[in-house]
Amino acid sequence: MNGPWRRCNPLWRFIVIFHSMGRFAMARDPAEQPSLVNRVLAGDPAAERELYDTHVDRVYRLAYRMTGDSTQAEEYTQEAFIKVYDRLATFRGEAALSTWITSVALSVVLNGLRSAKRRKAREHDLELADRVVSFERHSDPDLKARLKTAIDDLPEGYRTVFLMHDVEGYTHQEIADSMGLQEGTSKANLSRARARLRVALADFAGAWE
């Protein structure tokens, strides 16, 4: 059920993400990227804002897709940008800046979601059990609600890849670079995510024909 990515220590995930940026990624906007980064590093407030304006939509959209909550999405987006500014000096320019920012944002969101999940699990053990039972009985007649439940129930690695690729339109290369995976692993995770969703929504297939 749980992939190696999910099982391994969060610190290792972080190291893998940053290491992989250097190994796999190619700069995609080499002309614009260094000058903006250098200006931000030099303390230019206009450049800080420009970097924010360029990338905030992408980060916020991903945070919202992952959380489904505007307060949480805003919180994670802010935290991600604060981390981006703090660590920009470590950006080596080998990956696209957008990919590097996405990897920082993803780590913020995933860590935040894990904390929230642990908190919720402690508070709502019984409620969670009821929800699982109702899902197994396929008693939810609404397709969107069923799909939401099915996506929510995907393992973290599958869910992230599915949302990034099929919903937000990231390429496998970008996903792999952001998550510190091989591109093949990203493809495999997407394939497994789709298979699980097909099973969860199998009884709707007839209605769609």
Partner: peptide
């Protein structure tokens, strides 16, 4: 599934200014 999933946690307009101020 992909088409329906686009409505999953569909993001509202990015609250740029509010987040920037924060």
């Amino acid at each position: 599934i992909r088409k329906v999933a686009r409505g999953y946690h569909e993001p509202p307009t990015t609250p740029r200014e509010r987040m920037w101020q924060a």
